[in-house]
Design a protein around this nucleic acid. Structure first.
Length: 847
RNA sequence: GCCCUCGUGGUGAAAUUGGUAGACACAAAGGACUUAAAAUCCUUGCCCUUUUGGGAGUGCCAGUUCGAGUCUGGCCGAGGGCACCA
């Protein structure tokens, strides 16, 4: 029998799908829709295994929903602005545009070879003026809504990328892409007012019940809502300062107040700039790096001012004011009131500077006198030593009473504070979306009128200049607005802006006048299922949620709220790491083994390989497998089958050559089985009723359908193997041909989402030309005639008895007692009672 | 330090949501076919017993229950996120 030739079959069907536009999005708006979206890739050169996994998972879902007769939107595009293009172009003297376009064409070809059911007619690319024109229009819109502003502040400066990073892009004090230590620099920057929506972004999370809890928790922590109050502390001193504002969540501990601490960036610091000691202190603070270790180990240090702060609850209580290294300017008001008894950080500070440590909270059940000694007591309890707050329980009663009292004394008011900061969107880079702002000679700016958009990037420019290349484009910068010459803004937008609305663009990718068509997004949005890596849990997903709220703001027509109804975060693809004895990484391709040990070849000699732990595939560790090569050797179906098998999609998967080979063998085995079945059907001489097969098929429909809904794709692969194991035995029976064919078509349809090429070819052999539909399980076959009853004695399984379904209890018991083994056990025991779980189990309780 | 998630064979994992633990696969060992190898197929998989059979068993300890991988409490371990957030 001829062997399955995946090459010709896969190519044939991929051509067929392309020619027939098989995955073109339907236009019938009366049909139920399903918007399936995977995070679009950055066109870095070639696809990697992470892409294969991500897009296979999405494709299975899209194909399943299509078979279920949904109108499916399954598009693909390119997140094509960004620094790698600029850097690569700089190195090779290319235009970033050419580099990007070349990569897109390579990756598109590769994705097609996976057999993805993508509507390529909707392809978009964020670096195309057709796309970023609309982004510039959105910029103007948000600007006019007051959601964009410019301010000068300290920024995270990446010295390698020569650009500003958002807080979220700084990981352990290092740039998220460059890995270089980030510097503090003062710059004038554009900001999105994301903090305006803090509460909505937080509350919206509650509606997202199809999101992983993990992601919601991360966003919740990031938004960081805390309840408390602001307090104006009166200042006694000879300077012009008369009060300092603080934010606190613990006004109930105000009687434990023993110092006030300020950030070195606090406005008051200007009175101390000339003080030599202060300068020294400030420098010391800046030296405390931003790395993980330095933060963890940083000693709490302070600089004592001549200011004295007064406790609003006790005018006689006066405490010193310090500058302290642990106070951040961009949270609260850059000032904290120190209560060493009940805050560990304040406690350490007080110990160092010998400040009083007063105990004002005592644990609820503590008997006798409670005193803070070796560490702060931060738990709940009863207020003590606090005048009118005494005996109140904290947090609840004491905090509200304290706030009430503060408001009565006009010393402050109730306040909610968020950790979420505004999103800095300026980047000093060429390869990004230009910001539609122009400056006059005085440095005052205006927005560029809509009819002059898009502002296109200049082409063929010199990138090897220092800093932002656009700064050197004098001609390009000139723009005439209302007859007057202005100079364009040279900052470009953070690429996270590009990906914050692309899901809207996919709904109407060719709409010329505006970024989206209202009717289209009304039908398609929200995305029903969004699939991507968990590394975007905060950045991209929070920004996208913000963007929807910003578009909706003051726009009654825009009804959608959350962009992504369902979110699925897939795990990473891992591989063992290999090194030689000099600690140089080795590619898996270089490693071979013949006697159970691993070697690689060097100068015609073999040398032992040191095998390291399995880690997420990364170019730097060389533990990568090239998808294209794998597809070439085993075919797309086998790759899809393997990448879905073994591990659940949300968990990391180990790449294994053996596993890959097993999937490949299965594809071939399956084809041989298929040919046998076709032969049986063609012979058309069977006489056996298909009851057993019907039962199997209908159970399978139920299993695979529910497993698809629950993303249990690894179990579906197991279901497919089970199906093979079942059919290879069943095929010996001479089933009635028509019925066999009917069952077999259903079974093939169930496998279509996973291995579409071979299944398409197999269905062709059935001479079936109608539109495929997802089979529905017939309840008749799910109700079995016989059931296996587990017989337990005192909860332990003793026997398994096959009886008719739905027998009355008494008959079940009688049948079981006929069982020799059970009756033997029961004969010398005292039967106390029995528990019957219908059609499943009988438990005898004996003594 | 705080928050979240997870602990099941040699390995990746299943388990109808409280009811047959280990489906499905990888690896291993033994066997069949073959001159041989590859490919393919079959068998085995903890302890005691020659078999029949019996027993233990889902990180550890307790609890709830007729019955716990699944529920509750405590402990141990692994992974991830946040990190001076006042």
């Amino acid at each position: 029998m001829e062997r399955y030739n995946f090459k010709t079959v896969e190519e044939k069907w991929q051509n067929f799908w392309q020619k027939n536009k098989s995955f073109k999005t339907g236009l019938d708006k009366k049909k139920k829709k399903f918007y399936c979206l995977e995070m679009f890739p950055y066109p870095s050169g070639k696809i990697h295994m992470g892409h294969v996994r991500n897009y296979t998972i999405g494709d299975v879902l899209a194909r399943f929903k299509t078979l279920q007769n949904y109108n499916v939107l399954h598009p693909m595009g390119w997140d094509s602005f960004g620094m790698p293009a600029e850097n690569a172009a700089k190195e090779n003297n290319l235009d970033p545009k050419d580099w990007t376009e070349k990569n897109i064409s390579v990756m598109k070809t590769q994705l097609k070879k996976l057999g993805l059911s993508i509507d390529w007619d909707r392809e978009i690319s964020t670096c195309s003026p057709d796309y970023y024109k609309h982004q510039q229009i959105f910029f103007l819109e948000l600007y006019n809504k007051g959601l964009i502003y410019k301010k000068e502040n300290y920024v995270n400066w990446d010295p390698v990328e020569q650009t500003v990073l958002a807080n979220e892009q700084v990981i352990d004090g290092k740039g998220w892409r460059s890995g270089e230590t980030v510097e503090r620099k003062k710059l004038s920057q554009w900001f999105f007012k994301i903090s305006e929506f803090s509460d909505e972004l937080l509350n919206g999370l509650d509606q997202l019940d199809k999101w992983p809890n993990k992601v919601k928790v991360m966003q919740k922590n990031w938004i960081g809502k805390s309840f408390g109050c602001e307090i104006d502390f009166k200042i006694k001193a000879n300077t012009s300062v008369d009060k300092i504002k603080c934010f606190t969540t613990r006004p109930d501990t105000l009687f434990g107040f023993s110092f006030l601490a300020l950030s070195v960036d606090h406005p008051i610091s200007k009175f101390y700039e000339k003080d030599k000691e202060y300068q020294k202190f400030k420098q010391q603070c800046s030296k405390t790096g931003t790395t993980e270790e330095s933060i963890a180990q940083a000693e709490k240090i302070g600089f004592k001012t001549d200011l004295i702060a007064i406790n609003p609850f006790d005018e006689k209580s006066e405490v010193p004011v310090y500058f302290a290294n642990f106070v951040l300017m961009d949270y609260g008001f850059g000032a904290v009131f120190g209560c060493p008894g009940h805050d560990q950080r304040d406690f350490e500070f007080a110990k160092k500077y010998n400040l009083p440590i007063k105990t004002v909270v005592k644990p609820k059940d503590f008997k006798g006198e409670f005193k803070v000694k070796d560490e702060a007591y931060v738990g709940d309890g009863i207020i003590i030593n606090s005048s009118f707050l005494d005996k109140l329980s904290t947090p609840n009663d004491a905090i509200s009473k304290a706030i009430e009292e503060i408001e009565k004394r006009k010393a402050g008011k109730k306040k909610i504070n968020f950790r979420l900061k505004d999103w800095g969107i300026s980047r000093q880079r060429y390869w990004g979306c230009p910001i539609p702002i122009a400056y006059d000679d005085n440095g005052d700016y205006i927005t560029v009128p809509i009819n002059q958009l898009p502002i296109k990037l200049p082409e063929n420019i010199n990138l090897k200049t220092k800093g932002n290349p656009l700064n050197h484009q004098e001609e390009w910068r000139k723009i005439k607005i209302d007859g007057k010459i202005y100079k364009l803004e040279t900052d470009t937008l953070d690429t996270f802006v590009d990906s914050s609305w692309y899901y809207l663009r996919f709904c109407s990718p060719n709409n010329k006048s505006y970024g989206y068509d209202f009717d289209e997004i009304k039908y398609w949005m929200p995305v029903n299922q969004y699939i991507g890596g968990v590394e975007h849990a905060i950045l991209h997903l929070l920004y996208s949620r913000f963007f929807m709220l910003a578009l909706k703001h003051k726009n009654e027509k825009f009804v959608s709220k959350e962009p992504f109804d369902g979110l699925f975060t897939q795990g990473m693809v891992c591989h063992e790491t290999y090194k030689d004895k000099n600690n140089n990484w080795l590619y898996p391709d270089e490693v071979f083994s013949d006697d159970g040990k691993n070697y690689f070849k060097i100068n015609d000699k073999r040398e032992r390989v040191i095998v390291g732990p399995s880690e997420s595939m990364s170019k730097s560790k060389k533990n990568v497998i090239d998808p294209e090569k794998i597809i070439r050797s085993y075919g797309a179906d086998a790759v899809r089958l393997f990448i879905l098998s073994d591990s659940p999609p949300e968990k990391d998967i180990q790449w294994s050559e053996q596993g890959m080979v097993a999937s490949y063998k299965f594809i071939n085995k399956f084809w041989l089985l298929h040919k046998k079945i076709i032969k049986k059907i063609k012979m058309n001489n069977g006489s056996i009723d298909t009851y057993d097969l019907d039962v199997f098929t209908n159970k399978l429909i139920k299993k695979i359908s529910t497993n698809l809904e629950k993303f249990n794709y690894n179990v579906i692969v197991a279901n497919i193997y089970e199906t093979y194991n079942f059919l290879i035995k069943e095929i010996e029976k001479d089933y009635k041909s028509v019925l066999l064919k009917e069952n077999y078509l259903k079974i093939l349809t169930l496998m279509m989402p996973i291995i579409p090429h071979i299944i398409s070819e197999a269905i062709k052999d059935l001479d079936y030309n109608k539109k495929l539909a997802w089979p529905i399980a017939n309840d008749k076959y799910l109700q079995e005639k016989y059931v296996n009853i587990v017989v337990q004695i005192n909860g332990k399984k003793k026997s398994l008895i096959k009886i008719e379904k739905n027998l009355p209890d008494i008959e079940v018991i009688n049948k079981i007692k006929e069982d020799e083994k059970i009756s033997n056990i029961l004969s010398d025991k005292n039967l106390l009672k029995h528990i019957i779980v219908k059609n499943r189990l009988v438990n005898f309780i004996v003594k």
